[in-house]
Amino acid sequence: MRKAILFVAFLFVGAFLLLGVADMRPFGEPQMAVMDDYYIQNAQPEVAVNNAVTAVVFDYRGFDTLGEATVLFAAVVGVLGLFRKLREDER
């Protein structure tokens, strides 16, 4: 019974997700791309970089990248912390 209710809810969520996605603008035709056009046009003169994606990753949205590096750092520290050598009284 619970499973059935859950399944219905799951179907609802899935249906809404698919609906919401299908209701979007058509694929391949972004409507408002002012920001991205700026990136494409100014990657070379402003950042002196040929690869616009790199320009976005490390310059225009460099702070996201710092956050991402932090996420990875946190995960590494977390995993190292989990597998760390414990003291005698902590076993």
């Binding site: 996201d64 956050g67 996420v71 946190a74 520290v77 977390g78 989990l82 760390r84 902590e90």
Partner: peptide, 24 residues
């Protein structure tokens, strides 16, 4: 918005690591 998400993930991972930090 995306910056918000990135920081959300930082807190998520750091918090979860802390929750499981007492391995024993």
């Amino acid at each position: 918005m995306f910056n918000f998400f990135v920081f959300l993930e930082i807190t998520s991972i750091a918090a979860a690591s802390m929750v499981g930090f007492r391995v024993w």
